[in-house]
């Protein structure tokens, strides 16, 4: 790597330094906008005892489900884990520790982590099991709970296009958790469908500025669809 050129050419290089026991953020909503190839590379490297922060846990044979198959994840922060039988089994047996977190709170914990804010008050979850053990405060007559922010050793994300300096553009709803996670990883690795030269992306249209990004790799993607729904013709 030279100067501000963030491009790497192998997935091994993209994940260099990722070791057992680390905390990772993994972008995506369902299977939409997940870093598919970074996940399969982690499976192949065989890193274990991982803590994953991700809205969902993939399905049995795709996304984070691939790491669950090999018992590589010990703890996961997620908002919804409904589509994964293996996940259920490992959660019920206690092999996998699960911290269910409201989706907006999860997004904000990551945003805050990347923005240097250690915690924030939110009304979400007040009076529910999520609030147990958390500091509460009444502000202007409304009750809030204190939610600590999240950061990670690695953020693994997916974008549509990058330039060589790591400026990113996402496509449609494949954006989801990726922009916040890009800001909250000590090392942020992005896989994209296309890499262009610096200067080719219109600065008005950049979603994630390159300052947050450490490594960029070009991949090819399956983009599996969970609920293919079409209208009757």
């Amino acid at each position: 790597m030279a100067g501000l050129n963030k491009v790497v050419t192998s997935y091994q290089e993209a994940l260099a330094g990722l070791t057992d026991g680390m905390t990772l953020m993994v972008g995506g909503f369902g299977l939409c906008g997940i870093p598919e190839n970074l996940i399969t590379t982690m499976r192949d490297i065989g890193v274990t005892d991982l803590t994953c922060i991700s809205n969902n846990a993939g399905v049995d044979d795709f996304g984070l489900g691939l790491l669950l198959q090999k018992n590589q994840i010990k703890k996961i922060y997620a908002s919804y884990v409904g589509e994964n039988a293996l996940f259920e089994k490992q959660m019920l047996s206690g092999e996998l520790e699960v911290v269910l977190t409201p989706q907006g709170t999860l997004a904000e914990k990551i945003r805050a982590g990347g923005a240097g804010i250690p915690a924030f008050f939110t009304a979400t979850g007040y009076g529910t099991p999520i609030a147990e053990g958390k500091e509460t405060r009444e502000i202007d007559g409304r009750h809030y709970i204190l939610e600590p922010s999240l950061t990670a050793d690695f953020a693994l994300i997916k974008a549509w296009k990058a330039d060589t300096m790591g400026n990113l553009v996402y496509r449609n709803t494949a954006m989801n958790f990726n922009p916040m996670m890009a800001t909250a990883g000590k090392i942020t690795v992005v896989e994209v469908e296309e890499i262009v030269e610096a200067g080719e992306l219109d600065p008005h249209h950049i979603h994630t500025p390159g300052i947050y990004v450490n490594r960029v790799i070009k991949g090819t993607f399956e983009k599996r669809i969970e609920q293919r729904t079409v209208k009757a013709r």
Partner: peptide, 12 residues
């Protein structure tokens, strides 16, 4: 299965 966005929606 998780609360997804429901807790945020009812609080907001």
């Amino acid at each position: 299965k998780g609360m997804g966005g429901a807790m945020d929606l009812v609080a907001g």
